[in-house]
Write a protein that binds this DNA or RNA. Sequence first.
DNA 1: AGGTCGACCTGGCAGC
DNA 2: TGCTGCCAGGTCGACC
Length: 268
Amino acid sequence: MPELPEVETIRRGLERGILNKTISRIHIHDGRVLRQDAEDFTRRLLKQTIVAVSRRGKALALSLSSGESLVVHVMMTGQLVVDGGTGVHTRVAFEFTDGTKLLYNDQRVFGQLRVVRDVGEINYFKVIGPEPFDKAFNAAYITSALKKTSRPIKTILLDHTFVAGIGNIYACEVLFRAAISPKRRGSLIKSAEASVLHREIVSVLKEAIRHGGSSMRNYRDSSGKKGNFKARIRVYAREGEPCLTCAAGVVRIVQSGRSTFYCMKCQR
DNA sequence: AGGTCGACCTGGCAGC
DNA sequence: TGCTGCCAGGTCGACC
């Protein structure tokens, strides 16, 4: 599912929907999404108040009044829906003392929920690279990181140790807007191009957040709504359709086992 | 050590 | 209709 803009949209929705609410009951319909014993999970969450909702990369952390955190990674098909009706893919349901609910739905059961004392216990938080909107993520950082690798730039953008939060859709969109071929080796990216990459990463992600993210299949925000950025997507999943710049056909290739969409004429 | 490739799951869709 | 194979917003560990 979701990449940074979608997870950020969920985070904002949760901030509106469940901040300061206290968990009164937990129903675990499918324990496979838990990364710990169900009993331990429940015990550490019951009677806890949600005091903050934060995001790092594509992971969410709900801070609890106990000082612990409920970390949720929705992976491909997870959804956190406030006050929705239970469906076939509801894996965990949280009830609050005011009678409202938060559902964790997940078709493919790839997502993970875990209560930790400190998010630093989770490997994802240890290895993840800078947030794209952080000062530490800039053209100089990009230039020096790319210099060291021969991997294709598309694969590098997907590597969350390089930068947090970019997934398959936005990697394709960023490269299209930067007019850089997804096949270009990192070490062959010039520093002027690194500046363009930085600018496009920031602008595409910000634009996507403004539009509530992209829904290709499963993504829904915390109120169950689809994102609107799909209408602004220029290459992702548009194989065979005309490039919006030059009208040549958008092509699909496979890199590191994942689909890449791009325009061979506009992206060099 | 850097880079690539399944495995983890369920379900929708195209093609026969 | 019903089967088969392919594809899907991610991440990790096993391998070369």
